[in-house]
Design a protein around this nucleic acid. Sequence first.
DNA 1: TGCTTTCTTGAGTGATCACTCAAGTATATA
DNA 2: TATATACTTGAGTGATCACTCAAGAAAGCA
Lengths: 190, 190
Amino acid sequence: MPRRPSYDREDLIKRARDLFWTRGWAGTTLKDLEHCLQMKPGSFYAAFGSKDALFEIALDTYANDGLNRLKTLEAELGPLETLQRFPAMVIENEDAPAKACMLAKTLLELQAHDHPLAETANQHLLRMEDQFAQLFENAQTAGKVDATRDPKVLARRYQSDLMGLRVSAERKGVDAQGIATEIANSLSQL
Amino acid sequence: MPRRPSYDREDLIKRARDLFWTRGWAGTTLKDLEHCLQMKPGSFYAAFGSKDALFEIALDTYANDGLNRLKTLEAELGPLETLQRFPAMVIENEDAPAKACMLAKTLLELQAHDHPLAETANQHLLRMEDQFAQLFENAQTAGKVDATRDPKVLARRYQSDLMGLRVSAERKGVDAQGIATEIANSLSQL
DNA sequence: TGCTTTCTTGAGTGATCACTCAAGTATATA
DNA sequence: TATATACTTGAGTGATCACTCAAGAAAGCA
């Protein structure tokens, strides 16, 4: 009996994710969202409940996409080459609306306000870190990385360098691809 | 004949800088500033003109302090040890209200809005990068770093890693000192 | 002390914030 | 086709935003 929505929910979430990703939490107003999603306030709140609720969905989508891209890449290239290629891929991805990591941006913006979304972002970053550690461990098993190194330590440093790269890539006049190449090269020496 | 202000302007600027540094541009309201600086709106606008104007002064203060700390450190420790100790110092500084770099936070928050303060932050980052390059060059002259490496390339990578470290240090449950140690160690291999 | 000049006060400005809700509209089932 | 059940609309909510300004208070000079 009911009337069905005229929108594609997944498409709306991706558009909202891109908006939040580029403009941040406070920098994205409901007016921005209404325009971007072509929804009036009533529909928006019926569909998503609140700005924060949609931001959380967007964060989850972002993080899951990142994890899946990493796993797909490993199946194609193997663990070491995945770790080497990932930095360059992330900053040259033309589908992405920004270079910097949405999780890092969210953390930096909301951590000081003790906003729950900062903790959500941190949890997603921890999941990413675990995945990086898994890749290092697989590379060690394959004999491509010194087996005496702690994969968790390697992952921690790798993730940190990756976040730095992605902040650098957001700047104008910085050769981020050069930095990405160096990160990849330093992995060859492990 | 005139009446003098009852406040210490430099002290106010430092307090405003710490507030902006932790809470960000949009995250800091005029009410926050009024409370932190103990000023009513009228005095605030007479003294600083606008929220943006004070933010810019705060950014300049932040950047100049950073540059000066680097130069002081070089006079004490020499170029290579300065580069090695700086990362750990920056994230364990107990006077600082946040771990992440205020210039990086400002850039990430305001770049997408084409806000002039984003460009200001980028300019300050470039000055920092130049100073890092100078330190690498001095380390080469002293025979502590392979003279065939381009100091500007080394500085670019160093600054990127430093920004990553400082984002990581903002997170809960991350051993940032471990990352700082690794950054320092990797400089020994140059 | 009186005058001039500046600083301080705080209620108030219009704009914008996230969000609500009653009325109108479209669609799947009966 | 009639009806029940959503979805869509958009004016409107109180709160908060950055900011203003007229009136009062204090300090330096005569």
